[in-house]
């Protein structure tokens, strides 16, 4: 009798949930959470190592022609106004900053914390990586995280709009293309967690299915 009541209650509950699920639209969003010091260090460290790996690939000319450990020593702790083209100062660096901001957002950091993390990552790159070929620049130190975060906020809103409000496949592709962090495992803004028990297994093994949609 007890089993029947439980089953009935479950069925009722399922009916309500199922009805709700029919109308539920899974949406791309950002889930903000607290981070441990270890997580913060891991995220900063991974971006730092990535920047060391990408720098010679993105700027091969500067790396080969102007880069040396002697320059590294000379440029250490030196901050100047660079003479670079707008292509770098007003396009590449702010866009890189926006993707840094979105990377940290995808990892669950609040907006202001994402800005702070982008600031730290950018400063680490400018002050300890890029000095291999040129001194750190005031424009880059400021524009990368600050202008980058402003652009990142705009990209975040636009990509969520494209991903949530359009059934057009190209809009979805564009939404991911401008905000590629939504494609990686660390982005938990759209996910369904499904617990399951294997009825065939004598040990009643259980599993959690993490389903992401792209």
């Amino acid at each position: 009798m007890t089993k029947i009541i439980i089953l009935y209650c479950c069925f009722l509950f399922y009916s309500v949930i199922a009805h709700g699920l029919e109308e539920t639209e899974y949406r791309y969003t950002y889930i903000e959470r607290q981070h441990s010091k270890q997580e913060v260090a891991t995220h900063l460290g991974s971006i730092y190592l990535t920047s060391w790996a990408l720098y010679p690939l993105i700027m091969p000319h500067a790396f080969k022609e102007q880069g040396s450990w002697s320059n590294y020593r000379n440029n250490f702790a030196k901050i100047v106004f660079d003479q670079d083209q707008p292509f770098w100062n007003w396009l590449v660096h702010p866009l890189a900053g926006s993707q840094l901001f979105l990377f940290y957002r995808a990892n669950g950091y609040r907006k202001e914390n994402s800005l702070a993390m982008a600031f730290i990552s950018s400063a680490l790159f400018e002050l300890t990586v890029e000095i291999y070929s040129e001194p750190a620049s005031i424009q880059d130190l400021y524009q990368t995280p600050v202008l980058g975060s402003l652009i990142g906020l705009g990209i975040e809103n636009l990509s969520l709009y494209l991903l949530n409000n359009s059934n057009n496949i190209f809009a979805h592709i564009l939404g991911h293309a401008i905000n590629p962090s939504t494609l990686f495992w660390f982005y938990d803004g759209k996910i369904i967690v499904t617990p399951q028990i294997n009825p065939q297994d004598k040990n009643k093994s259980a599993a959690l299915f993490l389903t992401g949609e792209f």
Partner: peptide
Amino acid sequence: SIILLIFLSFNVRSEEAPIKKSDNKWAL
């Protein structure tokens, strides 16, 4: 198993951390 599966299924919703007192200190 099926009922348990349905009963325990859930979706992760958008959630913003609560506003702290310090929220108005930093500004962009």
